[in-house]
Design a protein around this nucleic acid. Structure first.
Lengths: 341, 341
DNA sequence: ATGAAAGCGCTAACAC
DNA sequence: GTGTTAGCGCTTTCAT
């Protein structure tokens, strides 16, 4: 066992100070790089002592004293929702770059649970809160602890009186639907989207309408289902039952689009030959669908950065709505050819 | 604005005490239900004051005093890994039931980052650590902070000197491969698994070998690739290139299996007609693959519960390895018929 | 049954 | 440039 045995009990700043022959204040100055200067020699002695003792500042004490913990809370519907998982990862990465840790909590899509999370997370001493809802952001938004910096993430619309960042959902929707119309000549494009009432559906729905309008195409059938794969799968019956079957489908989330693909396959309908399908989100899974899904990719990394920027802004996040553009990712489900090997 | 305006600054125990006409000690007794008794009338007054003031104990102060935070750390490779997302969700749910919060951090599959996380997470004041690696658990395991309760999650093998809980990976692998052999009569089953050196591959590989041996079938080709979809996809070339093409493929993760499906489709090979494919993990996505994937479902909820039980055990987690069984989930990729509608 | 008071470990204002 | 010291808000021992 050549390994140096670390002390079971953690060293305190006072112990470091004693060992370095200085006062605890100086230890603090050195560890935190301020607020007062320390002579180079002294600082070196302190750093040695810190190393020798394996000293790590006690987070709780620091938090108590400073009133901040270096932890941000993240409220999402479900981590197992693939898009939310990718967004979470982006948030974690961005947070890690800033020396912040992320306390994530899933609401299970339950507004009540979400409301409760907004109460309990602050109790865990988070410095700020990132709230990403699928259900759509109610107006007024559910109250977060007053005084706790909060930014709404993945918000397609402004959130009354709050700071929000999100995708330019209308632009993204227009992008994929326009592709269907312009490149593949579709004129009957169905919409598969979330339960009505969710404001989030609105922005994507609007993009679909706008794209259609630009080509003088009448809106195809609209079917409202859950935001997940199961919802998309369930939508297929309605899609196929209508008087005239649409030639293309725009699903407002990739999960729904994947469900649509699944349902279509079970029904023996070929994609893209019989019906073209496009999604929205740009999750990794979409690239591995059969056929690979054409979709609009959300700028998750940029959204995460923007949200943390807003959260860390001195003076707190400022009311407003920052939207980021999406990119079109063309694959085969729209009817485009597979890329040459 | 009928809403009661909450005070911007949080109420302290002292304020509650003043309002209830008692001492801070009594507030603590009431809030924590101990360690001393309080007269019912007094307790009621305190509870009223707590409600009126919207009092929430300051976590940092409590943590400082008690030396525990109610936060457990979770180290995973990537949240965007679908299986890890489902495992995370299970951990979060189980933790929430116990009043614990989860601080999750992804290592991006980098052993160095993981080692670093094991150092930094404790600094954030977590009470315990759950470590779930894909890379396989090195022996000896990377050192966590001494004295910090740690349990290895998703560990298919015992972790030297540590507490570990994981799937009975060998049994799970046997389950799916046996299905291929017994029900569908395959005798040439290829293995798609992770980079060699990862001990985790071993358990699943062993199950494959055992199932084959039980039927006197020779081991099919083995191809080692990354644990993700891309790995599975990349494995296809090797699978198809061999002297005699296997009639079935066992991929040791669903992600790999999904990649195999993708690669096979691109190569124009039909599943299950030309080649059967089975996976391992039981992620939601598998149900929506084309064709829907037959797989072994990991008991994520039970593993999460077991891990937290171990973590919370008075006296700390105890060395050992607890394995939980998997269930066979039969779908179409093995050659079984689609369930009647 | 209740209160007074010490102190968890750290930071930063203030004194030298 | 460095030391002294007063708390941050809470829990809990000890005294009443």
């Amino acid at each position: 066992m050549p390994q140096t045995e670390e002390p079971a009990r953690r060293a305190t700043a006072a112990e470091v100070a004693r060992r370095a022959g200085v006062s605890p204040a100086v230890v603090s100055y050195v560890v935190n790089g301020g607020p007062r200067n320390v002579a180079p020699g002294t600082a070196a002695r302190v750093r040695d002592a810190v190393r020798d003792l394996g000293y790590r500042p006690n987070r709780a004490a620091r938090a108590l004293r400073r009133g901040s913990t270096g932890i941000v809370g993240l409220v999402i519907p479900r981590v197992a929702n693939p898009f939310m998982a990718e967004l979470s990862e982006a948030v974690q990465d961005a947070a890690a770059r800033r020396g912040l840790a992320v306390l994530a909590a899933g609401s299970g899509n339950e507004p009540d649970v979400e409301r409760e999370l907004l109460q309990t997370l602050p109790r865990h001493g988070v410095d700020g809160l990132l709230v990403a809802t699928v259900l759509g952001h109610a107006d007024p938004p559910p109250g977060t602890a007053p005084g706790l910096p909060t930014v709404y993430l993945n918000a397609p619309f402004p959130v009354g009186g709050r700071c929000a960042v999100g995708p330019d959902a209308t632009q993204g929707a227009r992008l994929v639907v326009d592709h269907l119309l312009a490149v593949h000549g579709h004129r009957s494009v169905a919409l598969v989207t979330g339960e009505s009432g969710a404001r989030r559906a609105g922005a994507r729905e609007l993009g679909w309408q706008q794209a259609l309008a630009a080509y003088d195409a009448a809106p195809g059938p609209v079917v409202r289902v859950g935001w997940d794969r199961r919802g998309g799968s369930a939508a297929v019956a309605a899609l196929l039952a209508g008087p005239q079957r649409p030639t293309a489908v725009f699903a407002t989330s990739d999960a729904q689009a994947l469900g649509v693909l699944h349902g279509l396959r079970a029904a023996g309908v070929r994609v893209p030959e019989d019906v073209a399908v496009v999604g929205f989100d740009g999750i990794e899974e979409a690239a591995y669908a059969a056929p690979p899904l054409t979709t609009a990719k959300q700028p998750v990394a940029a959204m995460a950065e923007a949200a943390l920027d807003a959260l860390e802004r001195p003076g707190g996040p400022v009311e407003g709505h920052q939207v980021l553009g999406l990119d079109l990712v063309v694959r085969e489900s729209c009817g485009c050819p597979a890329p040459p090997d």
